[in-house]
Write a protein that binds this DNA or RNA. Structure first.
Lengths: 226, 226
DNA sequence: TGGTAACCTGACCAAACGGTCAAGAAGTTT
DNA sequence: AAACTTCTTGACCGTTTGGTCAGGTTACCA
């Protein structure tokens, strides 16, 4: 398939290592998502990667080390995928963009989101530092942007922290709790790609209205066909 | 402390059983919340309950059986705590009440929420039936209520299913991902009781605005004190 | 007061766990 | 093709796991 992402695809010294580490981490991500850290077994990860267990331990000495690598990979992935939000941006455009990108991550990388969710549920023992430093810095830098928008009358007054909490909650629920949404919608196990489009649109509408940026959705204001 | 909840507190035949089962289930809820099903150990549950491991197995033959009991208890708790939503209700009142009750559950029973979240993340292997039957029936009965409100022009048009998904997401994030919110707000490990009040108010505002039921929060419409 | 049912628990077990290791296979460099 | 590094893996080890059980203690009822 598309094994060739970039940089040093063919030979080169660390070729085999690079390939196998990626294979193991991909398998580990799925197993950690399904079972959590303590519930995941190295044997299950090895089997999913199609390798003997001892080989997994050759590349990652301990389960903790592998888990850390998976977590770091997820944080890197998210950082790369999400554009920033600055005071110069148009609120409607910037937040719509942000929400759509987050839902797209829920669709394309649900396992990553579930590993992260698993960690948060347990009190984030291995992410405390990240949450209290990088993430907090990120949001502390974004809060003045929201406040500036409010002061300029561009959006309705709202608590910036809770705005982000709620956006995160809504965008990630379709990855973390996919099973619940799918069951209620009668989809079976997984949501359809279209469901994510609908989720994205509904979250954008909800947030835009909450900020007083009504988009006048389908024409008529209230009431519709029954 | 307040061990005496109700019904048959003093003697009666199944007195000891009732007491110990409750004690074990309470301990189990915490351990399952912290570690997930596979990660939780019967030894840890026993220790938390202050009983020998063998005693736990006297009341609950297997870990699965205990887990099921905890899950059933949670569903019962939620059913009891949440009032219904009917077409006769005023949308603003009914949904405000619903949101506030859900956030109150996140504050008072965070472990229950986290056990449930853990189960959903793993694909809900033991809750599929509940999700596809009871929960789906509940929401399928509520969707016409929302649609009626829309048709009557009482609220702005919105997808009823995704409205509930988003409300669930926002109200539960403060229990399930408490560690994230607390870290970002600089609260340490846990949110303060006031944080939940704020969360509740912000979610209500967000949903009300999304439904065109602006509550005119603090007086001024836009812009505020700098 | 005696009998019966419910409750308690230390000691134990097979299976599964994370992790190690030595010995060999494959790849690379000179 | 020799010398060396990297990779591979079956077999193994100490520990932890969910669960059992026999034999005891306590509570209840006649």
């Amino acid at each position: 398939m598309n094994e060739c992402t970039a940089e040093t695809t063919d030979n080169s010294p660390g070729r085999i290592r690079q390939l196998n580490e990626a294979r193991i981490m991909q398998a580990a991500e799925q197993v950690f998502a399904d079972a959590g850290f303590r519930g995941a077994t190295t044997a299950a990860i090895a089997e999913r990667a199609g390798l003997p267990k001892a080989n997994v331990h050759y590349y990652f000495r301990t389960k903790s080390e592998l888990y850390r690598a998976v977590l770091d990979n997820i944080l890197k992935l998210w950082l790369d995928a999400l554009h920033d939000i600055t005071a110069d941006d148009d609120p409607r455009e910037a937040l719509t963009h942000y929400i759509e990108a987050k839902v797209e991550l829920s669709r394309s990388q649900p396992e990553a989101s579930r590993v992260f969710a698993n960690e948060l549920i347990r009190g984030a023992p291995r992410l405390k530092r990240y949450l209290s430093n990088e993430l907090r810095d990120w949001i502390d830098a974004r809060v003045p942007v929201i406040q500036a928008w409010i002061a300029q009358g561009k959006i309705a007054p709202i608590d910036p922290y809770f705005l982000f909490f709620n956006i995160w909650a809504m965008t990630q629920t379709y990855a973390d709790f996919q099973s619940q949404c799918a069951a209620v919608l009668g989809r079976g196990d997984k949501l359809k790609p279209e469901d994510y489009d609908r989720a994205s649109a509904e979250i954008v509408t909800t947030v835009m209205r909450a900020l007083g940026l009504e988009t006048a959705p389908t024409g008529a204001r209230h009431g519709g066909d029954d």
